[in-house]
Each structure stands twice: as C-alpha cells, then as structure tokens.
Simulated scan of single mutants.
Amino acid sequence: MLHTGIQWEYLPQELGFGSGMTCWRRLATGNEAGVWDQLRMLLEKLRSADKPTGPGR
C-alpha cells in the first residue's frame, strides 16, 4: 500500500486483512502509538548487532 500507491478501497479482501478502511485505521492507530518508531529502533539495533567489531573481525 505504501509503495504502490493503490487506493485503500481497492485492497483485495481475499488477502484476509479486512476492508481497506480497516487496514487504514490499523495503520493510523499503529502510527499514533509509535509502532513505526519502535520498529525503526529495533531494526537499527539488529543491524548494529550484525556488524563485525573488534580485532580480527
């Protein structure tokens, strides 16, 4: 949805996520709750943990 530009009402209900409006509300609620910021921080931690550190690495 965020990358293709498809309108929410055209989201296929066969995917099992509910209506386009339901998906939009879930995205908005998660955004207001700071979910994306938390995911971004987790991703940064995971990326930094994967980087080799110290001698011989």
Rank of each mutant, 00 (worst) to 15 (best):
L2Q: 14
M1V: 11
E9N: 14
M41C: 08
W36I: 13
L42Y: 06
G20D: 09
I6R: 07
T29G: 00
Q38I: 08
L39N: 13
Q38W: 07
G54A: 05
Q7C: 02
R57A: 15
A49D: 08
E14L: 01
I6L: 14
E44Q: 09
E14H: 05
E14Q: 03
E9G: 01
R25Q: 15
L27W: 08
A28L: 09
C23T: 11
F17Q: 03
M21R: 12
G54M: 05
W36A: 13
S19T: 11
T29Y: 07
S19H: 01
E14I: 01
V35W: 12
E9D: 14
E14K: 05
T53P: 07
L46Y: 06
G18E: 02
S48R: 03
L46W: 08
I6N: 09
P52K: 13
P12V: 03
C23H: 14
G18W: 06
L2I: 10
C23D: 07
E44R: 09
W36S: 12
V35N: 10
D37R: 12
G16P: 00
L2W: 12
G56A: 07
Y10D: 11
E32S: 11
M41I: 08
Q13K: 15
Q13Y: 07
T29M: 02
L42G: 01
G20V: 03
L27I: 11
E32A: 13
Q13D: 09
T4I: 06
L11W: 10
K51P: 06
E44N: 04
G16F: 03
W8I: 00
W24I: 00
N31G: 14
M1L: 13
S48M: 02
L46F: 02
N31C: 15
Y10W: 12
A28Y: 13
L2K: 15
N31E: 15
D37K: 12
T22G: 01
F17S: 05
L27P: 01
G18S: 02
L46G: 05
L2C: 15
G34E: 06
E44D: 11
E9I: 05
W36V: 13
Q7P: 04
G18H: 01
A33W: 11
R40Y: 09
L46S: 03
Q13W: 04
G18P: 00
E14Y: 00
G16S: 02
Q7V: 09
E44G: 04
G5K: 04
G20S: 08
I6Y: 09
D50E: 09
Y10M: 14
R26I: 06
D50P: 00
Y10G: 01
F17P: 00
T29W: 00
P12S: 02
P12G: 03
M1I: 11
H3P: 10
T22N: 06
N31W: 15
K45H: 02
N31D: 15
A33T: 13
